[in-house]
Nucleic acid binder design. Structure first.
Lengths: 215, 215
DNA sequence: TACGGCATGATTGGATCCAATCGGGCCATG
DNA sequence: CATGGCCCGATTGGATCCAATCATGCCGTA
């Protein structure tokens, strides 16, 4: 059981991470050490360590003697991250499909349905994330999983902006691709699933790249 | 010009990083904050930040209230990293080959020759690293490059152990594969180069995995 | 009026000091 | 003799204080 972080810097990092992921802290906003320290009733030392941590995760940008900002990605950086994901996530899925239990697969099917059912943006984002990450769960590659989760975190704000932009009606392609993906998973079709996922990510990347108003 | 790190923590991090990469600090050795602080004539604060940094790079393992150790990888972790590299580095090379200048290619050919010529282990390691990283140079994917360099860093100690083990005579497969790679690069054969690199990394992974005495 | 230099406040980086935690050794006990 | 509990030194984590750096705005001057 890991109820509460034992280290203060860990708690601060987790809280800031959530604030960034939920959008409470928008990309580009400045993070003042003293403010955060006051908010968490600590000194600036744990805050500094937390900021270092978040920088290494790509969520924060640090400038020496100047300050910290919530990381802001330009289009080129988003595209690069998507292209990396196009290589990594199919590997994770491919390693995982053969080892998923029937219960895992049922769970994924539930998630896929829930994704189609919800009109809410934040529910959609959360469920979509759960769906994909859980499909990689049995890959047994912890470092790969950590990298993938970091990418999802850094992209979260832009995923939200994009999801809002296209609206609930614009999600039909996602739903379609998820269904194909589920079928491949149920068939234990490793290569099919990998390829479908690659195309799924690639299409999203391309659509994202055509929307200048996100950046 | 970025002559000297302006931040103390940055200098400490760089020095520790080099010490780990050169093997001066062996995997598993403990790193005491006070020792490092004394060695660099600073307080423990910059040392702590440097250790955080190195942990995020995978070079150091931190245990709360206990201490820091030079990261030690077991066989499974090494295999996982190699498998990730098998996906990422071909992408970097594939993106780069079309944009390499004739000067770049000449430089790579020089490096490939130098690799075959040297009997020294450390020269071999350094040149081999240069050869591969420079072949990715024109990929124009800075984040991908950073990830790849981090992997090379975390694997460095195990590459050294393996290279010592097989001796200069055991490198013929490497030389052969480098020659094939060079030919593909000279042909601007993107897919051929990608595939050759994938096989190059895969073979290395397999050989490494059969050597229990490295871990 | 526009521009360049300087001073000042705000903010971060680092040093020192104190508190919390962990590991090892010692002693008592079964 | 083995084992379990406890105490104490060593080491890390955090708070407070001081120094270095940067940005802003003011003022003098062309």
């Amino acid at each position: 059981m890991d109820g509460g972080e034992s280290l203060s810097s860990g708690r601060v990092a987790e809280a800031l991470r959530q604030a960034i992921l939920t959008g409470t802290l928008a990309p580009g906003s400045r993070i003042r050490q003293e403010d955060v320290a006051a908010r968490f009733a600590t000194s600036r030392i744990p805050v500094r360590e937390a900021l270092r941590q978040l920088e290494s995760e790509g969520l924060v940008t640090l400038v020496p003697h100047s300050g910290a900002w919530v990381a802001r990605l330009d289009r080129a950086e988003c595209v690069e991250i998507y292209r990396i994901r196009e290589r990594l996530e199919p590997m994770a899925l491919g390693e995982s499909v053969g080892a998923l239990t029937p219960e895992d697969i049922a769970e994924l099917a539930e998630l896929a349905s829930a994704i189609e059912a919800t009109p809410d943006v934040d529910d959609f984002l959360r469920l979509d994330r759960e769906f994909h990450l859980r499909s990689y769960r049995r890959a047994n590659m912890p470092r790969l999983m950590a990298m993938i989760e970091r990418f999802w975190n850094t992209m979260q704000q832009y995923r939200r902006a994009y999801t809002v932009l296209i609206g609930a009606e614009g999600r039909w392609a996602v739903h379609h691709e998820h269904r194909l993906l589920m079928e491949a998973i149920q068939r234990r079709d490793r290569h099919g699933a990998e390829e479908l996922l690659r195309l799924h990510i690639r299409r999203t990347r391309r659509e994202l790249a055509t929307r200048p108003d996100i950046f």
